[in-house]
């Protein structure tokens, strides 16, 4: 019975989280996209501003929907802010149990790509562009895990 309940619960979470399958992509692209996503999230966990800077387009638009007392609003951060807070160690942790970083390449269309990153406390959707041969994160929308 416990197994049945666990299966039902797991099934519920799976549907809510909408797990998307990885897209087929050229191995070199997949490897490069995975590396950029890891520069971004491991840079955050390491407090390594240089790694974060390497992952981002200077024209980054990173947004999330925040619930306030007077309704929902869109909060935003650009590349400079994200690099600054990374360097300040805002997300730094060495605890392996708090450094979740599940990267899935969702799509590649020429010089653009879509990547999903499940981090410790949130999910990031990353849209990337290949600029001068380097993949860079251009737009992000993110959402905290439910508590």
């Amino acid at each position: 019975m416990k197994t049945l309940l666990n299966m039902l619960f797991a099934g519920t979470l799976g549907v809510v989280a909408q797990g998307a399958g990885a897209a087929p992509c050229a191995p070199a692209d997949c490897k490069a996209l995975d590396a950029v996503a890891r520069d971004y999230i491991e840079g955050w966990y390491d407090g390594n501003a240089a790694r974060m800077r390497n992952a981002l387009s200077p024209q980054l638009a990173k947004r999330n929907v925040a619930q306030g007392a007077d309704g929902a609003r869109v909060e935003e951060m650009g590349a400079d802010g994200l690099i600054y807070y990374t360097g300040k160690g805002a997300g730094a942790t060495r605890d392996p149990a708090l450094r979740r970083a599940d990267v899935t390449v969702l799509d590649v269309s020429g010089d653009m790509a879509a990547v999903k990153l499940v981090a410790q406390d949130w999910v990031d959707y990353l849209a990337l562009a290949r600029i001068d041969g380097q993949w860079k994160i251009v737009t992000v929308v993110w959402e905290l895990h439910p508590r």
């Binding site: 999330n64 799509d107 879509a114 959707y125 439910p146």
Partner: peptide, 15 residues
């Protein structure tokens, strides 16, 4: 293609 929906965030592609 709707890649994913998670809470109040979603990611899709129009080709």
């Amino acid at each position: 293609v709707v890649f994913n929906v998670y809470g109040n965030a979603a990611f899709a592609r129009v080709g």
